[in-house]
Amino acid sequence: MTTLNTAQHGSATWRLIMTECTLSVRDKVGPLWGIGFPLILLIILGNVPDLREPVDGGGLTYFDLYVPVLILFNLAILATAALPVTLAGYRESGVLRRMRTTPVGPARVLAAQLVANFAVAVVAMVLFLAVARLGFGVGLPEHLPGFALAWLLAAAALLAIGLLITALAPGRGPATAIGTVLFFPMMFFAGLWIPISQLPPLLQGIAHYTPLGAGMGAFQDAYQGVFPSAWPLLTLAGYAVGCSCLAVRWFRWQ
């Protein structure tokens, strides 16, 4: 009997995950803004000759730096828009409250949403690396295990931030407002508009303490063939653990 109940719960969870993945695609925020827009931007930037010049006489070009930035762009969109707006909308419409009366439970909805957004992030990361490599000759990160670890920690940190936004926002409108306020400064410190190395010293110091600035630092280490240094990895892990704990503490089902 216990085995049967476990199998039924597993089947229900899997169906819920597939449903949330389908809804995420239909919602278009993650696929369109998280994958489509940065992919188009990647192709445009790849055709700008000036961006193929080396940065500070080093081995990386400006375009090389934009590839990991756009990977972080995808994670930021998922964290500040797709995940919190969807879950806050579920709370606003009473879906989470009603799920508490079913055997599935609302916690599985959160887990399914996390899996769906993680899947979108994986697709985006692989797609961006493939397009940059096959279309513009940008090499893969020289230290692939280090890059994989940095990406996993960045994904965990950003998705935890998305859960925290969900915990704080009572509905879709506030979730959108909080996400928008966070998105642009996070992307600034990731080097979307100006490479981090060209920022004033004060802003460079601040960037190291931000999730995307730390992610970019870890990515650059991996691209240069070395395992990411401890500080950016610890910073990302700190955001992942800290924001997750706060989200659990403040999360409201209704």
Rank of each mutant, 00 (worst) to 15 (best):
23 L>W: 13
30 G>V: 05
242 G>T: 13
106 P>G: 04
215 G>L: 07
193 W>M: 11
63 F>P: 09
167 A>R: 04
246 L>P: 02
70 L>H: 04
64 D>A: 13
30 G>C: 02
245 C>K: 09
215 G>F: 10
164 L>E: 09
210 T>M: 15
123 V>E: 04
69 V>Q: 11
246 L>Y: 11
21 C>M: 15
81 A>P: 01
77 I>H: 01
4 L>W: 00
214 A>H: 08
24 S>L: 12
181 V>K: 04
157 A>S: 15
169 A>Y: 07
201 P>W: 10
169 A>F: 09
9 H>S: 12
68 P>E: 07
242 G>L: 11
13 T>A: 14
53 E>Y: 02
15 R>V: 07
206 I>N: 06
46 G>I: 12
111 A>E: 09
119 A>Q: 04
177 A>F: 10
249 R>H: 05
1 M>P: 08
189 F>M: 06
74 N>D: 12
229 S>D: 09
205 G>D: 09
235 T>N: 13
234 L>G: 08
185 P>K: 05
129 L>V: 02
134 L>W: 14
54 P>N: 08
237 A>G: 14
30 G>T: 01
83 L>A: 02
226 V>A: 07
10 G>H: 10
34 G>E: 03
77 I>L: 03
64 D>E: 12
167 A>E: 06
138 V>Y: 06
215 G>V: 10
166 T>M: 03
238 G>H: 10
196 I>T: 13
213 G>M: 05
137 G>Q: 05
53 E>T: 15
238 G>E: 07
229 S>T: 11
106 P>S: 09
106 P>V: 10
26 R>S: 07
70 L>F: 15
101 T>G: 11
226 V>P: 00
129 L>K: 05
142 E>M: 10
143 H>Y: 08
82 A>Q: 12
1 M>R: 12
48 V>L: 15
97 R>C: 05
175 A>V: 14
79 A>W: 03
197 S>P: 02
157 A>Y: 09
60 L>D: 06
229 S>Y: 02
135 G>M: 13
219 F>I: 08
173 G>P: 00
40 I>M: 14
35 I>P: 00
8 Q>K: 04
45 L>T: 02
102 T>L: 13
95 V>T: 13
133 R>L: 10
254 Q>T: 08
209 Y>G: 07
178 I>K: 03
142 E>V: 07
232 P>R: 10
111 A>T: 12
21 C>A: 14
236 L>T: 08
